[in-house]
Write a protein that binds this DNA or RNA. Structure first.
Length: 429
RNA sequence: GCCCUGGUGGUGUAGCUCGGCCUAUCAUUCGGGACUGUCACUCCCGAGACUCGGGUUCAAAUCCCGACCAGGGCGCCA
């Protein structure tokens, strides 16, 4: 059907016959001359129909088109200095493949602004916008780069179950699902499973998958279904996996700054300029720095948003690690270090991009940690058993892809970087 | 869940403070028409809206109450 994308047609092809397909992006009817812009994934191309040179039926058809009708145009390429990109197509035949019924829910050319909620309701049309497509092309580039990177480091890609039994890691709420005659839940993270895999000898695994949290939070950086990139690595300590995370971030940033998509989004390279190696700020240092600024965080507590908004300024760089969190602020599976833990968070401005650490691989200590979080070790036997049968020391992390995309694109709402976001009030479309 | 702000044609808005010439503004869109170099084309004609439910009042888009929805903040968040 289609012989060329818009971008593949050049002035040098003067005289050649091509077929372009896409949406009617713009239509200017000057009476005896009609300009029609066709938009496809790669760009736009102008079709020019002079009344005297075009078959009357075709001319009539073009004049009746509406914005966003789907068409294919067979025509002759013409070099033309007055046209965008120095070329236009003189149509021989126009086929209307489908037409818009009724009014469009928003203007995909972006001339009339639309609110995010309106955009998400009509996401299909919203995603026709160049800059919105750029986000998801970039997301694809990022995913590919991350996969390539982790493969190059010897990681094996795995898939853990998303339907799980009751046992939770604590903290977050889970979505219940009916599972035949039993109750089950949607997985909040691959944590327990990727750790269990460390007992198998697969050694280095990663997973890129969606996870679910039933939190009733309603902020611009939270959704109830999110995509997580998780790794777990046997025979490693915290610093080993921090180095991998750091290198991954560096790879992603250097890949992304080269892209057309970034320009499309109007992001300046400087916005993504990060100095490596990243500073490692200890938790206790962090709360001390904040205390000097008058923001008091009680020892053992998580750092509130207000504090995180200040902290990166105090550290002096947008990307940094906070390490050695208190056990009280971390889940049971983290390796204790006295009252502290072998843990880290990767921060980007005030957003927590990733968190991880060395895991507790010692059965007795792990059972104790589960108890101290008020959980019942019996609920975790499927997990704990793996620690009885020869579990090597291991470390890992989880990186929020959606949050990474926010950081890269400068989106101020996480919903913008998710095709069809799921939040407290939205399950459709 | 709490606090703040808001809800007007398909979309984005003006009007709301101080109720009444609101028969509701403008743009875009859609329908009809004129126009041979547009690129936010131009011009003419037409279509299309006050979130819902109560209340106050002679009179409510405008004031009050409630619901629902949205945006932001906080909380919660492996």
């Amino acid at each position: 059907m289609r012989t060329h994308y818009s971008s593949e047609v050049s002035p040098e092809m003067d005289g050649e016959e091509v077929i372009v397909c896409g949406w009617v992006h713009d239509l200017r009817n000057l009476g005896g001359l009609i300009f029609l812009k066709i938009r496809d994934r790669e760009g736009e191309i102008q079709v020019t129909a002079p009344k005297r040179k075009v078959d009357p039926e075709t001319f009539e058809l073009i004049s009746k088109l509406s914005i966003e009708d789907v068409v294919s145009v067979r025509g002759i390429v013409k070099r033309e200095d007055q046209a965008p990109r120095g070329l236009e197509i003189i149509p021989l035949e126009v086929e209307v493949l489908n037409e818009v019924l009724g009014k469009l829910p928003l203007d995909p050319r972006g001339r009339v602004k639309a609110e995010l909620d309106t955009r998400l309701d009509a996401r299909v049309v919203d995603l026709r916008k160049r800059e919105n497509q750029a986000i998801f092309k970039l997301r694809s580039i990022v995913l590919r780069r991350i996969r390539e990177f982790l493969y190059s480091k010897g990681f094996i890609e795995v898939n853990t179950p998303k339907i799980i039994a009751a046992a939770t890691e604590g903290g977050t709420a889970l979505f219940p699902v009916k599972y035949f005659e039993r109750n089950a839940f949607l997985s909040q993270s691959p944590q327990l499973y990727k750790q269990m895999l460390m007992g198998t000898g697969l050694d280095k695994v990663f997973e890129i998958a969606q996870f679910f949290r039933a939190e009733e939070h309603d902020t611009r950086r939270h959704v109830n279904e999110f995509t997580s990139i998780d790794i777990e690595m046997a025979f490693s300590k915290k610093e080993d996996v921090m180095l991998i995370l750091e290198e991954l971030l560096r790879e992603v940033l250097s890949e992304v700054v080269k892209t057309e998509e970034l320009k499309e989004l109007g992001i300046d390279e400087k916005d993504l300029d990060v100095e490596f190696p990243l500073p490692r700020i200890h938790y206790e240092e962090a709360i001390e720095m904040l205390s000097e600024k008058g923001i008091e965080v009680e020892w053992g507590e998580d750092i509130p948003t207000k504090g995180l908004k200040e902290l990166w300024k105090l550290v002096g760089t947008k990307a940094y690690f906070i390490v050695d969190w208190p056990m009280s602020a971390k889940p049971f599976y983290i390796m204790p270090k006295g009252e502290l833990s072998e843990s880290f968070d990767l921060m980007f401005y005030e957003i927590e991009l990733a968190s991880g650490g060395q895991r507790n691989h010692l059965y007795d200590s792990l059972v104790k940690a589960i108890r101290s979080k008020g959980l019942d070790p019996n609920d975790f036997s499927f997990y704990l058993d793996a620690f009885k049968w020869g579990m090597p020391p291991h470390s890992g992390w989880g990186l929020g892809l959606d949050r990474l995309m926010m950081a890269l694109t400068g989106a101020d709402n996480i919903r913008e970087v998710i095709l069809f976001p799921r939040d407290r009030n939205r399950v459709i479309p």
